[in-house]
Design a protein around this nucleic acid. Structure first.
Lengths: 345, 345
DNA sequence: CTGAAAGCGCTAACAG
DNA sequence: CTGTTAGCGCTTTCAG
């Protein structure tokens, strides 16, 4: 690796001059010398050592991203958004992936082991002199384990801290669910079944709230026996759909696309056509949901935008002394496809 | 940020001693001093500056990953595999995402602009002193633009260089397609329609080769009019399925799950049942393919394993002088689900 | 306009 | 067992 020192020796000037010239400081050297230095640098494929540069400048223009699990469907798009914003603002990213799914098996986020891992990753990033950290959750929830020794801006994406110390960006589950419900109501559906995720899930609670408020607003009584709880997996959608269809609902709002999948299966077995005999809405807009027959209506969370906003907040918090620290709710997009129709009595 | 110097001042020893103690060099200081230094460091939350450390050691234990597009379905899993292997071997990763899809629109990988971007990313990583680079393609193909000035090990994942200069890890398209075809043949299918991707695609060519070899091996004549070319998208699957079904094929092998999606649609419209009237195989094992009704049989590419192998090769190439530089083909897993059945005459 | 000198935070000889 | 010294590659005063 050729260094500034080497170039200085060859061109017969000081390292300072080489540095200045290469950094475009006008008048750092005479016209001819300037040319010569640049030419030599190019021909030797000189490349500044970022480590040395950053060490000296005490500034890395880098933020760290910690993903709970990069292979979860929402993560790449969020990271992509962060990356895009950073690039536009001349910042770089360092990625740390916890790989929670493969590392442990299931519920792990509130164990000492996980806290230790979190601390380790944060420490390691701080050691690398990142100027801020974005923590990307694998599903939305309240994070109660807040690492202590973080002296740099920290932002949560797709999850939020229990206390108001750090900012976070999530999407508006409640509003989206309300919108979906109203759309269904507008189509004449009154007997709407719901397949939630686990009762304790933030998503479940927020979406249920939205559902309830829409129903109430339109004066429709909610029977308790049409609210089912699944586990986000296809099979549970299949099972809950059975119960719901027994109850003759005219529409089903599944809180994710996976479970909606199971509804298709259940309906097929009963000879019922989705989008005709029964309307169906999902949530997440998984890439293939559009390919179901008929295409699944669903809710698209603003993943890329979550990333961008997080990055924006982090960069602002890095540059300003007053830190922003609230929860930001971004709106979702409702995608109506062939799986819903007006009620058919 | 507290430094070694600060701790040295407080404890009244030299920075060298603090460094030695903190790095666990036995006998770096007396028992008591050792304790004191460690205690002070802990209480002040001392954290070594990785930049300074790496600069001095001229070793970063870091490799760079360049993804053509992190949001493409295969990328996160490959990155995950690389990350896992690196973690097990005390290496860190730096991620650079080209965001090809959003940056340009479609075919872009052989434009000067893209070459420039590639060079820039590689230069930037080398500047950060990574010890090796893994380039993750967004789809498998021959990469003919090979950056020149790369003095460190470079490995391609999910794509391969035209010349034998750098190693690469891809999966065995041909073998997988052959296996699928033989499976179909074993179930009595002779009249098998194929929906390929674009004719120029590596995937198309390799899979077609596997298909042909299986058919030939079993003495089945291949009619040219049952080989259709789509564009990987659902709609094209839908269209090609129409032509194929007109020709009364008993099975369809779609070269990806998306297009298989379209086959479901087309079959539904014609009142044909997948897995009964017509057998269907996809490729990719997209997460939701399992949720089709009936579940789609498909091929699972060894994405995580591709990542792991790339990382393994890179770390080996970093440590050894003899560099490995061939293409490695990893086997896929055939997933037989309800969408295929024995032929039904 | 130019360069000598100092030093970012850390480690690795090597001498005491 | 301990500390001095030198320096990784770079930038940045500041004096000539």
């Amino acid at each position: 690796m050729v260094t500034i020192k080497e170039i200085a020796r060859i061109t017969g000037v000081s390292t300072a001059t080489v540095s200045n010239v290469l950094n475009g400081k006008s008048g750092a050297a005479g016209k001819e010398k300037t040319r010569e230095i640049i030419d030599i640098a190019n021909s030797m494929q000189y490349m500044p050592n970022t480590l040395a540069k950053n060490l000296q400048k005490k500034k890395t223009n880098t933020i760290g991203i910690i993903t709970e699990d990069l292979t979860v469907f929402n993560a790449p798009e969020i990271v992509d958004g962060i990356d895009a914003y950073c690039e536009e603002n001349s910042f770089e990213i360092i990625l740390g992936n916890m790989r929670l799914y493969k590392r442990y098996n299931n519920d792990f986020t509130d164990t000492p082991k996980h806290h230790e891992l979190t601390d380790m990753m944060i420490r390691s990033m701080i050691a690398k002199q990142v100027e801020g950290i974005i923590y990307v959750g694998y599903h939305c929830r309240e994070i109660n384990y807040l690492p202590s020794q973080v002296q740099i801006p920290l932002v949560y994406a797709y999850c939020y801290p229990g206390k108001d110390i750090y900012p976070s960006v999530i999407f508006d589950d409640e509003k989206a669910a309300k919108d979906v419900t109203e759309l269904l109501i507008a189509k004449g559906h009154k007997n709407i079944g719901v397949i939630c995720g686990p009762a304790a899930s933030y998503h479940t609670k927020a979406r249920l709230k939205g559902f309830n408020s829409a129903m109430t607003k339109h004066g429709i009584k909610i029977k308790n026996d049409i609210i089912m709880y699944g586990d986000w997996d296809r099979i549970s959608g299949y099972r809950m759909a059975a119960r719901l269809l027994d109850k003759k609902v005219s529409a089903i709002f599944s809180f994710n696309d996976m479970m909606a999948c199971g509804v298709y299966e259940q309906a097929a077995e009963r000879g019922l056509q989705i989008g005709k005999d029964i309307s169906l809405f999902g949530f997440d807009n998984r890439s293939i949901s559009q390919g179901y027959v008929p295409a699944l209506s669903t809710v698209q969370p603003p993943l890329n935008e979550i990333g961008r906003r997080c990055a924006e907040i982090i960069l602002n918090n890095i540059n300003q002394s007053k830190k922003y620290s609230k929860i930001i709710y971004l709106p979702c997009t409702i995608l109506e496809r062939r799986s819903v129709d007006v009620v058919n009595d």
